[in-house]
Amino acid sequence: MPMCSWFREPATAKTLAGFGIHRIGDLAAIPPGTLARILGAKTSRLLFERAHGHDPRPVTPEAAPKSTSASYDFERDELDPTAHRRALLELTERLGLKLRTSRQVASGLALTVTYADGSTTQRSRTLPEPTAHTAAFTTAAYDLYARLGLQRARVRTFALRAEQLTDAEHAVQQLAFDPGDEKRRRIEQAADRARARFGELAVRPGALAEPTEP
């Protein structure tokens, strides 16, 4: 590997090049004493170790994303509130599945609406508790939509963003005593298993089913 693609100190690289050391293999072949006379004890020791693959620095994994989003583009600027809500349902289905698959939960939800003239409006809200439950996202998304009062607005795009993401195992959730909620979560888990095996479209809400020809 060329030295320039591995080492980012131009002055030191130039000094090494003056001695015919252009590649990592060249550097690794230089005796430590000779390298010390060229670069000094501290720098030579560091480069000698790196050239031989010794790097004690801990590996820091990339930080998990703090948000994730999904968008829905209408085929034409859409005025129908039923079509609007159907699009929002599809987005919450996608977000919920994505977070559950990655074992994350969100504490906030933001809705961005792009209109026919290209202008946008955004609303956001904090969720009652961290969640990846599709039903919770849908309730929040419908509430954000209702607050915008889009009865006569032609919508071009909806974008829904789950915010303040954390690992699901670290999230504190309230105990639910609603049998209906517990049943919905079990159904959701079963649907997720089916999607993992047969694809994301294996299970969809009836409201998202394609209409059949009479």
Rank of each mutant, 00 (worst) to 15 (best):
E75N: 14
R103V: 08
R152W: 08
L88T: 01
P211C: 12
D192V: 06
A110G: 04
P81V: 08
A171Y: 02
A191E: 05
M3T: 07
D26W: 02
L47F: 09
R186M: 10
T212W: 06
E213T: 11
Q174T: 12
I187K: 11
L208R: 10
T60I: 11
V113T: 05
G33N: 13
S107A: 09
L97F: 08
T166C: 01
L99Y: 01
T82M: 10
L175F: 05
L127Q: 00
A146W: 02
Y115V: 04
H170A: 08
L165R: 00
T43F: 10
R185N: 10
Y145L: 05
Q173V: 12
F74N: 08
V113R: 01
T60V: 13
F158A: 01
P128F: 04
E182Q: 15
T138W: 02
K14F: 06
A28H: 05
L144N: 00
F137E: 00
A17H: 09
R50A: 11
Q164T: 00
Q151K: 15
R23G: 07
I187T: 15
Q173D: 07
Y142L: 08
V105R: 03
D26G: 07
I21Y: 05
A168S: 11
E163H: 04
L39V: 06
A132N: 02
G53L: 13
A194H: 06
V172R: 07
A64W: 04
A70W: 01
T212R: 13
A29M: 12
G199D: 10
T68V: 09
Y72T: 08
T34C: 15
